[in-house]
Design a protein around this nucleic acid. Structure first.
Length: 479
RNA sequence: GCCAGCGUAUCCGAGUAGUAAGGAGGUGGCCUGCAGAGCCAUUGCUUUCAGCAGCAUGGGUGCAAAUCCCAUCGCUGGCUCCA
């Protein structure tokens, strides 16, 4: 299996530290606002990686954090005149609801920055002891000069330009800028400003800087060296280099063997932003589209590419997904026989071939678009056979198909709760659902009587009205 | 300005040396009482056969280029909080 590693800019053979176990840390959202479709893409990318590693037999341990204390959160909370927790917690709840709706596997850990204050303080103390950090005027900074590998990550600077002292280091945080020894140094602990939340520390009242929470969480939850560290491509600088510098200074060991960064969601080829008014919240999209359609859409482009969001592309995803669903339904509902036939044998072989190709694609840096192409092609082949008049599917094919669907679901997560959906089982104790189903069956059979008598005006009216209610009737040739 | 990535048919989107996956939309056909779903064909140009173009643009290297190299244009991102 190959994975593209941002550290080396190459696809590399994936090898975990401990056989059969993968430790992954993902930089999660800063919860100062509702999640937009970009957050969903990021979460989806790491869910696919999680699922696929799991499918490959790894025990996958995932930590994804919530940054629930930072400048923006404080700013918003102050604007609304509420404690910062009252701002962040509802967004965390909403985020979690979205993740469940989109069928994301639960993470092993979802730590909040504010739950890690003590560990963060201990981490910083150790860095000071080791000479990698210094306190000045109530704040603590990481000394970039104490870590000679700083700025060599992600090939930011070409060899020829390594001496080039560009101004990317100039710190915008003027309040603290003059306390730094080197302008590239970054804050580990920020001294409290008037009206800000604070915690006690050996350096007085204050709060953690942005980068340190991830280092402290990784160390305490996963260990000194992890297999995969993920996040959006915007974190390639400065967040990830800073994390590396802190953690490797602390442990003296490699922080993460692989870095994985996901591409962004654009709108009309422009960055999604509030000033352009092209911002799409997940909750709004889910009002219009089923979660699995959104999921199908998000995995229809490669995780490292940017994806262009438009209503059209979701419509396309919707059509593709319903095509799959129709076929699955046909197979699940059909009654199978034991006898083999040439058609059935061929289809069974095609399923096996398609699955092999899907595994090959996923092995190549999680190539979901190719996997999707394989699935759609396979389904066309299947439709070609099973929708013929008088065809009866056999046990071997059905078994192979059901198995295929289950495997695809475990890898791509696109068919949750399939049996209930496809077979239309009433959910649990819900007697009303059963009643409704019986009523629909009754109407349908009455309508068939009308069709037999060629009373098409009436039967079409019934079909139209049912469709308005969201119930689709598909006619077959009347016997 | 500096750094990185991208530019593929009407549209969405794969493809990093061996001759453009897959889908959506359009058109024609099969099926249907009709519709939907599904299937088949077609969807750059000249067309009978066949041939010629073609992966932003212009050059270059190769037997062979969407793919490698150079230049240009355009877009996106990073350099400051970001998924």
């Amino acid at each position: 299996m190959k994975v593209y590693n941002s550290l080396t800019f190459k696809k590399e053979e994936f090898k975990s530290i401990i056989p059969n176990e993968v430790k992954m840390y993902v930089c999660g959202p800063t919860v100062y606002d509702s999640a937009h479709i970009g957050h969903a893409k990021s979460a989806m990318v790491f869910d696919i990686i999680h699922r696929y590693l799991k499918y490959k037999g790894y025990n996958v341990i995932v930590a994804k954090n919530y940054t629930d204390i930072d400048d923006k959160i404080i700013e918003r909370a102050n604007e609304k005149n509420i404690p910062f927790k009252e701002l962040s917690e509802p967004y965390i709840t909403e985020y979690e609801e979205i993740m469940v709706a989109l069928n994301l596997l639960p993470d092993t850990y979802n730590p909040r920055a504010t739950e890690f204050i003590q560990k963060i303080i201990e981490f910083i103390q150790e860095l000071i002891l080791k000479g990698n950090a210094y306190e000045n005027n109530g704040s603590v900074y990481f000394s970039v000069d104490s870590y000679d590998k700083y700025n060599t990550f992600f090939k930011r600077t070409k060899e020829t330009e390594s001496t080039d002292d560009d101004d990317l280091s100039s710190d915008q945080d003027t309040q603290f800028g003059e306390d730094k020894r080197n302008p590239k140094d970054f804050a580990l602990w920020k001294k409290m400003k008037e009206g800000e939340p604070f915690w006690e520390s050996p350096w007085g009242l204050g709060r953690p800087g942005w980068h340190i929470e991830c280092s402290a969480m990784v160390l305490n939850l996963l260990g000194e060296t992890i297999d995969i560290h993920g996040g959006g491509q915007d974190l390639k600088f400065p967040h990830h280099p800073n994390e590396i510098a802190q953690s490797e200074s602390y442990t003296g060991k490699q922080f993460s063997n692989y870095f994985v960064h996901n591409g962004f969601v654009n709108v009309d080829d422009e960055k999604m932003s509030k000033s352009l008014g092209n911002f799409f919240l997940v909750t709004d999209i889910l009002k219009k589209y089923e979660p699995m359609v959104v999921r199908w859409y998000l995995i229809s482009s490669h995780y490292r590419s940017s994806i262009n969001y438009s209503p059209d592309s979701l419509e396309q995803a919707k059509k593709e997904y319903s095509r799959l669903f129709n076929t699955i339904k046909k197979v699940y509902e059909s009654v199978e026989i034991e006898e083999n036939s040439e058609d059935m044998d061929n289809l069974t072989i095609k399923i096996e071939n398609a699955f092999e190709n899907i595994i090959k694609a996923m092995d190549d840096d999680f190539d979901t678009p190719v996997a999707i192409a394989e699935i759609l092609t396979l389904f066309r082949e299947i439709n070609k056979v099973i929708l013929q008049d008088g065809i009866i599917i056999n046990v071997a094919f059905k078994k192979s198909f059901v198995n295929f669907i289950k495997n695809i679901d475990s890898i791509l997560g696109v068919f949750p709760d399939l049996e209930n959906k496809v077979l239309g089982h009433a959910k649990g104790s819900d007697e009303q659902e059963t009643m409704i189903k019986n009523l629909i069956d009754l109407i349908a059979s009455l309508r068939d009587q009308l069709r037999k008598k060629k009373l098409y005006d009436m039967s079409d009216l019934i079909r139209d009205r049912l469709r308005e209610l969201g119930i689709d009737i598909e006619d077959k040739k009347i016997q």
